[in-house]
Amino acid sequence: MFPNLKNPVFTDIDDLSEMARQLRRDIINELLISKSGHSGGPLGLADLFSVLYFNKLNILPQDPYNPERDFVFLSIGHVAPIWYAALARRGYFPIDELKTLRKINGRLQGHPAPLKTHGLPGVEIASGALGQGLSIAVGTALGLKLDKKSNHVFCICGDGELNEGQIWEAAMTAHHHKTDNLTVIVDRNHCQIDNRTENVMMLEPLVEKWKAFGFELFEIDGHNLKEIMDTIDAAKKVKGKPSCIMLYTKMGQGVSFMQDNYKWHGVPPNDEQGKIALSELLPTKFGDFVDYYKK
């Protein structure tokens, strides 16, 4: 009668790890085809997305807007290539569609487009202009609480994005209304488009800031799948206040020449760089959606 949304695809860490590597290969292939887009952030978030979409989220890809679903808001819309890869791999839309990233008449817009205009399953709302996602997540969390529902709301923010004042307005609102059905995940990779984050705008002491704003804080290695899994469980159990996971990641994780280098924030690899990247990210049992170099 009621579909089961608690339905992890993989419970084995090795499978989740292999999926994370496939998602990284997908990102490289998406960007090689589009020749436009962001490399660093998406690669750094592949482990998180593997855990979320293949283990932790209560979702039903064949019924993407099931009222019992967990909500995911990608406040940093520019990391769309990892979201699209995860959604496609999870069955929200055909994997072949990853070839259409940033192409005209496509659903895979450069930054996630609204459901009503572009209709990409799994996307809730537009994002791209930074700083807006947390307010939306708080609003949804408030609505769900009003209806006494148990869905959880996740909002993925970048660390550079925390320069935006609206994030802290939303943090105050979350605290004020005790939205314990909300978890903010901060991609703390210390990189933003211009430079290292602390050179652009001092964020530290960042954990203390979130604590001072009333959040239960978790600090974890964003590339340790077990830690991510355990922490998501712990965050969902927090009562009486919102939670924040400070996810320490490396921009460009998995590709040696991109790793921890802010210059890879907003550019795609060229053909030569893509070849090296794919040679470092070994093929997986899941298979690529394209063989880009087969001319």
Partner: peptide
């Protein structure tokens, strides 16, 4: 933003 989230 909060209003948009409530609408969702």
């Amino acid at each position: 933003g909060t209003a948009a989230g409530l609408a969702l």
